[in-house]
């Protein structure tokens, strides 16, 4: 009886050792390796690798892409989840399925879709060329691909929460004389603010880290269409390991910061959720 209620200490230790070992081997060691490699030629080389013009351009481009695609997806995500959770319309379940498409499709395929559409040989290619608009192998293509890949993050966080909250709060606000915008700003948005922040965080992490889709549409022009992940790959392929890892360490730092913020949010979110139930 006692054995089933309280598992033996040795069994507990074995499980803990396996879990910890796995964690160290597959998560912690690579993370440390990134920083060790990045600093292997000293702090000066590390700094130089980051301020080198091509690296700076890559960092800037990554920030620019995130700064465009994340707000776009906040707007799309809010609109889609608001529509899905608060209204009934034909084709609703199809829309829910479509929102998940970027998750189920390989990023490379996502990139290829845009090449097919906007590339020189693509459907709209001749028209775009005639009007002197370049999308593929240029910044707009990278923004498009990133926006596509990161589309589900905000909507996925919001839809279940909004659906669970129902329409009562909104109807109450409207019955008290609030207009649509007031209802959204004063009632709907505060009700989902933590989930929205959480979604934005995940969306941003992915937008900065996306490799596959961006790689297809970017064209890898150094200093012009290289994002940080692409820049890491190029440096690595040139055997410039220290510089590659220096840029990679920035991405790793971003991941760590995201994780920390995410935990913080989960904690706040949890407290908030409990208080409101």
């Amino acid at each position: 009886m006692a054995a089933t209620a309280y598992p033996r200490r040795s069994g507990q230790l074995v499980l803990l050792a396996i879990a910890l070992g796995f964690f160290v081997l597959f998560l912690l060691a690579p993370l440390i390796a990134v920083f060790v490699e990045a600093l292997s030629q000293g702090i000066a080389a590390y700094g130089a690798a980051l301020v080198e013009p091509d690296a700076l351009a890559a960092i800037k481009l990554t920030l620019l892409v995130a700064a465009i695609s994340v707000p776009l997806n906040v707007v799309f995500g809010l609109a889609a989840s608001w529509a899905i959770a608060k209204f009934d319309f034909p084709g609703k379940s199809l829309l829910v399925t479509l929102i998940d498409l970027p998750f189920s499709v390989s990023p490379v395929v996502a990139g290829l879709i845009y090449v097919l559409l906007f590339g020189a040989q693509g459907w709209l290619g001749p028209w775009l060329a005639a009007h002197n608009v370049q999308i593929i192998f240029a910044v707009p293509g990278i923004v498009l691909a990133t926006t596509f890949i990161t589309f589900p993050f905000v909507a996925r966080e919001l839809i279940p929460l909004m659906a669970e909250q129902g329409r009562d709060d909104e109807e109450a606000a409207i019955s008290l004389g609030a207009n649509g915008w007031q209802t959204f700003r004063k009632v709907t948005l505060p009700n989902v603010r933590w989930a929205l922040l959480y979604g934005v965080l995940l969306c941003n992490a992915r937008a900065m880290g996306e490799f596959g889709a961006v790689s297809v549409v970017s064209g890898h022009i150094r200093g012009k269409t290289n994002t940080m992940p692409l820049h890491v790959e190029i440096l690595y392929n040139e055997y410039n390991f220290a510089a590659a890892f220096a840029v990679a360490s920035l991405l790793a730092l971003l991941a760590l910061a995201t994780l920390a913020l995410k935990s913080l949010l989960e904690w706040r979110y949890g407290v908030h959720g409990k208080a409101s139930s």
Binding site: A172, S175, L176, A178, P190
Partner: peptide, 18 residues
């Protein structure tokens, strides 16, 4: 709803939590 000036009390009250 707003133009009708009607007070509506919801089953779960629908108070604004925040």
């Amino acid at each position: 709803v707003a133009e009708r000036r009607i007070g509506f009390v919801f089953q779960q009250y629908a108070l604004f939590k925040h």
